[in-house]
Amino acid sequence: MIPVIGLLAASGILKGILAILTQFNVVDSASSTYTLIDAMSSSMFFFLPIIVGFTAAKRLGSDPIIVAIIGGVLVYPSVVAMANPDAEGYHVYAQIGSTIFNADFFGIPIALPESNAYAYSIFPIIVAAWLTARIEPFLKKYIPAVVRMIFAPLLEVFIVSTLVLVLFGPIIMFLSGGIANGINWVLGTNYTIAGLIIGGFYQCLVIFGLHWAVIPLIAAQIASDGSSPLNAIVSATMIAQGGGALAIWIKTRQLKIKALAGPATISAFCGITEPAMYGLNLKYGRVFITASIGGAVGGLLTGLLNVNMYGFTGAFVGFPSFINPAGLDQSFYGFLIASAAALVVSFVLTYYFGFKDSDLDAEREVKKVRLGRREPAGV
């Protein structure tokens, strides 16, 4: 993820700016201006499987172009359309629990995620890069050199895309459905306890792209009730991850880390946590833990203060989403309290216990695998 962290942060900041312009009626969400700026800010996330496929392939020793093409399969418009319940020709071939098998491949039912959840995700394409690295040497060994340029990529794209769509994708979607059901159950049990649990663990779902299972729950809450307590909890976890990155930015003396931590902090406060998590908090594992503790505290207070959220945009940039259309109430003030607590707890714990510059000296050298050999990443 390191090669794309800067672009993720820039895209997250641009999304935040667009949200502010929209909320204060500077830009109309139905205008072409909005559409164009949204494309600028969203393209990085929408095509993330292609971009991460390229970088993952370089690390794992497979052909980056081939894996990028496989990423393109996951976000191809007609594949996305097949998963859309409103699309013409949409069918339900089978259903196991909350997992709907809405397409088939040579008669084998497969589960294509709604809302294009393969876009914005990284786990399926990383699996694809690993599989390609295993298959590629075998194909190169047995396919004659005279036709290898054509048939090796052909077989790699077909075999790996099939495995991801038929096997690994449905597994991920099945896990997502189970997580969504679990979150619904916790929310229905007790909002305060739900805030503590979801606040502490929600960003773990983001790591694997499983958090997209939560989006339909938020949409359903807003559609039925006009507000979403779940989204309020999620907002606190974004601020907590930003608090961890902010602590690193203030504490470190390494300029390269400061250059990464500053934009990652801003991006998290704009509601995009991936730059902070992939670039810093996960890399220095204690930071992710301390930031998650901050998220748990923020989520606990969100539930305790009965905070509701009346829009989708979260974190600090989404403060208008906490204003009740009927007028200011406890949701807005609770948002301020919970967000401040999440930030302070995450910052303090990270500053004193989560990170020190000596952690940089303990970094492992990133290596890649190529044809059975381990080589330095720069080779």
Rank of each mutant, 00 (worst) to 15 (best):
R286W: 10
D63V: 08
V75L: 08
E88A: 14
L360Q: 09
S228E: 15
P229M: 12
L155N: 11
V366Y: 03
P275T: 02
Q254Y: 14
P263T: 02
G71E: 12
I215K: 12
V75R: 02
A342P: 04
N116K: 07
F269K: 07
A261V: 01
V52M: 14
W249V: 05
A10R: 00
A117S: 13
Q330N: 15
G314I: 04
A296G: 15
S78H: 09
I248V: 15
M238N: 15
S41I: 01
L328F: 11
I122Y: 00
S121A: 15
V379E: 13
L175T: 10
S321V: 12
S115Q: 10
A247V: 07
Q95K: 14
I66N: 07
K15Y: 03
S227A: 13
I5H: 00
I5F: 02
Y278A: 01
W249Y: 14
L131A: 14
L343C: 01
V67E: 10
I135K: 11
F105N: 03
Q203H: 07
I337T: 12
M82G: 08
S358K: 11
N281E: 09
A68V: 05
F105D: 00
G243M: 13
L155P: 03
V369Y: 10
A342V: 05
I215M: 14
A194N: 07
V206P: 06
I233N: 13
F138G: 00
L163Q: 06
T237K: 08
S224H: 13
A180I: 14
M277V: 13
S331L: 04
G89V: 08
I50S: 02
I179T: 09
N306R: 07
N324E: 13
S227K: 15
R370I: 13
D357T: 00
A236L: 06
L304R: 06
T350G: 01
Y351S: 02
F54L: 11
T252E: 09
